[in-house]
Amino acid sequence: MGATVSTIVTATATMGAVGAFFAIALVALAKRTASAEDEQIELLTNLLPGNNCGACGMAGCAALAQALAKGEAVPQSCPVASESQIQKLAEALGLTETVHRERRVARVRCGGHRAISQWRADYEGVLDCRAADLVGKGGKGCVFGCLGLGTCSRVCPYGAITMSPTGLPVVNEALCTGCGLCEAACPRGVIAVMDASQEVFVRCVSTAPGKQVRSVCEVGCIGCGICVRVCPENAVEMLGHLACVDPNRCTACGICVEKCPTDAMQIILEDAGVLTAV
């Protein structure tokens, strides 16, 4: 019994002493070798959002902080940080220019869910839009629209994208930081990151003529140009067969949304979220 107690005491004391020695030694070494740069990197890391999402193209916030300290990046390199966070980073780096940043969010520019779009073929294989897109552009009739395999929702580090039961991604704008990873991952360019203040956009990316759009989808932009004609602010223009809203001119009056014959034009309503037929 006595032997056991003394064993415990000896072991604890020895390990404690070794631990204390190394702790003191490490702290002393750290203090001696500490540089101003290290401190700055730590400060910058703390000022960054800290999500480690990798949207800046680096391994994480610490990596971006290092790049910032070396002058290889600018505060705006972080696509997620808010205006005030960027301002603080700029101050910490001694930059004087003021930075403006709007809050940006991802928006889904396709409304062709399974019930209202045609499918040419059954796709079978790796359940990833990027893989399906390489097999004859996937089975969807529209070669521009959302394939619905949810790659965007899986790459989102913020859990902001979920797939609706009808196979379209739904962005929870409260969680979305506008990092752009989903935009980069989508093989169809269906997801676009835009200013959160932009209220009206076209929920279609098909550049095909109207006849073809009609043949595969009920809600695609057919390029009729009604929106261009009815817009009192001249904020809509046609890029080939696709309408495009200029956010700087749009006042979100909603006339184009009302007149759009296929409901491709969308308006974000503050209380109801996206007005869609999903």
Binding site: G136, K137, G138, A208, P209, Q212
Partner: peptide, 11 residues
């Protein structure tokens, strides 16, 4: 002359 489905899946 118009976009038509191509073997690669594109129009």
């Amino acid at each position: 002359i118009e976009p038509v489905l191509h073997p690669w899946g594109i129009w």
